[in-house]
Design a binder for these strands. Structure first.
Lengths: 366, 366
DNA sequence: ACCATGTTCTGAACCGTTACGGTTTGTTCA
DNA sequence: TGAACAAACCGTAACGGTTCAGAACATGGT
């Protein structure tokens, strides 16, 4: 495990060739096409390389010549913490990483803070393509990626012209969930959602703000809820929606607190993510509310902890989402037509949803 | 958002220069040193670039010339799923990503499956340095990284000659935890641990296997437990240790099942990770064992879900660990001496540890 | 003895950029 | 009027490889 001695200047393929008295081509072949030279010579090359502390052809130079970076970039303009703290996002990341591993290419997390207009990093990233995940619709980083002459696939976002896309059918899934809640008899509901736009608003979200949301996923889910509840005769204007910029369990709890303080009569809390729902669950416990007897709580994503908590939620195959994105990107190139992959979702009814108390009262009423 | 028309052949800095009738240097300066040319010319360059669909200097060529890849590599030889499923590992990843973001460099996940001897990806990765996390001591990928003429910092691993290292004081932290358990009066304990070596062993781990473990963290924790319990008069040979290759909550549950089936009299289950402990908790519930009245369960890492579950555990600053590794790597270069950063840990006593039942019986006994 | 066929190795042309050390032009000031 | 100097731009030489079309030599068949 001794570190090879470093000469004054790093050894290069050329210096190695000179030392051996062979051409650079031959040394290159020793690494890339073993069948192009005699085994003895190859052995001699490799031995000399070790002696000189040469670890093989420089990756960057090789990339320049072959026009392959050997890595795909992941654009997460979101606050990085979000991407890592939400198990659903981590699932996508994992799936993508798996696809990359299969293909033997690296996965580069391209930096770019939200609100940070500095897209230089996008331009500087040596990658063969981009996967764009969870960025606002009008993000400058996304535009910068599109500028680059490499393929791009977007995840969980409306399709942009001619680009590949992968995502679940958010609307349909949300409609299923909403119908479940409606079917149980709930008419007084509240909603907890994630950040809708790049500006922080840890408060109730107006109808305008909901419809103007820059985050497509949230917009789609809210719109689907609205449609379903209005079809059931519930005016959406009467439905309180509380937004949280950050995305921790605690944020879900505080959002639930804010909503329940102002609207104590709601019988169901629909959360646009499991993380928020877990927080709501905690807050319900703190208030002594029984779930689901006093309050129905639903989530979205189907993360492990939610399953363990018995949460009613929509499960989406996050791992597959990431994998599909990776395969799409790595399989691009020759393809001309753009591809769209829509993934199946599944409503998982747990122990946190049930008929509303008011319904029961109605049952026993006059 | 229209994709710029792609000419037959991608525009390059040179073709742009030709089109404009200026030198390549000037075009390069337009992007990299705006002060080196007149604002008008710069504007003209940028406009022509847009017209030709030139998105700026090629990152790879630039990297070759400047000798800076603009990315650091993360070596996770572990099964990728482990890295993404364990919140503690994700925390390290997040910290590292944050440090990279601060520095404006990318973070490349370098592929390399466990047991896979193909280290080509390590050689092919265009990075300015490596962070090595959670790989077995003798991993070929690690060796390959060391070969490369770039700095390397290792996380959670014994220091190798002259390399930077960051990690918690695993031994001290484990001793604290063990003393807590010993102090409560437990003498009949069992241990659930993560994979000890690259070969799968979902079973009891012999003393030899424990001491021969290739994963340093696990080895250190087990050794510390052994020391502490033997100091308390408990023969380590009598302590059952169950190992699990995979690392999901379910694995923790099955490990607990296996251990309790064979050793029903243990009063405490010490788990080397929170994930395993959460599984043990679930299994205890399934058996109708009250925690901690009938069984004490402890974890390690201090992940969010553990806190929520009230688990007694050792909290380690995973985020800081990743950040520190990133800073160390990015700050290297001029430095000659290697640095070692040891992070503080904290014993967090929750509601899953208490005195053993036998102790209570003893209390009321003759 | 000759040609066809391998095998093994080489020379030179790129890949697209930036570093370095200029040259040219215009302005200022004694 | 011309020396001094800054601003604006340029030419050349890398950076470290891969690739392709051959050259040189040996082998085998006819």
């Amino acid at each position: 495990m001794n570190r090879p001695m470093r000469s004054r200047r790093q050894a290069t393929l050329a210096s190695l060739a000179a030392e051996l008295g062979v051409s650079r081509t031959t040394v290159s072949n020793a690494y890339n096409r073993p069948d192009q030279l005699s085994p003895e010579l190859r052995k001699r090359v490799l031995e000399t390389a070790k002696r000189l502390g040469y670890a093989g052809p420089d990756p960057v130079a090789r990339s320049l010549r072959t026009r392959k970076a050997g890595a795909v970039g992941l654009l997460l303009t979101e606050n990085l913490s979000y991407a890592f703290r939400d198990p659903a996002a981590v699932g996508v990341l994992e799936g993508l990483a798996l696809a990359c591993e299969d293909a033997g290419v690296g996965l580069t997390l391209v930096p770019g803070s939200p609100g940070n207009e500095d897209v230089a990093a996008v331009h500087r990233a040596g990658v063969d393509g981009f996967v764009v995940y969870s960025v606002p619709d009008d993000d400058p980083h996304l535009e910068a990626a599109l500028q680059r002459p490499v393929p791009t696939v977007i995840v969980d976002q409306p399709q942009l012209d001619g680009m590949d896309r992968v995502g679940p059918d958010d609307e349909a899934a949300t409609v299923d969930l909403a119908n479940h809640v409606v079917g149980l008899g709930h008419r007084q509901v509240g909603v907890l959602c994630m950040r809708l736009s790049s500006d922080r608003n840890d408060d109730f979200a107006s109808l305008y703000r909901q419809q103007d949301a820059h985050y497509h996923v949230q917009r789609a889910r809210l719109a689907a809820l609205q449609r379903t509840f209005e079809a059931a005769g519930v005016s959406w204007e009467s439905v309180p929606v509380v937004e949280r910029f950050d995305h921790h369990v605690d944020d879900g709890a505080s959002a639930a607190r804010q909503l329940l303080d102002k609207h104590p009569r709601v019988t169901a809390l629909i959360c646009t993510s499991d993380i928020l729902a877990l927080g709501a669950l905690a807050e319900a416990g703190r208030r002594g509310l029984r779930v689901p007897a006093d309050l129905t709580i639903t989530g979205f994503d189907g993360i492990g902890e939610a399953t363990r908590a018995g949460l009613t939620t929509v499960h989406q195959p996050v791992l597959e989402k990431g994998k599909a994105a990776g395969k799409l990107l790595l399989g691009a190139g020759d393809r001309v037509a753009s591809k769209v992959i829509t993934l199946p979702t599944e409503l998982r009814v747990g122990t946190t949803s049930g008929p509303p108390r008011t319904a029961e009262q109605h049952w026993f009423g006059p």
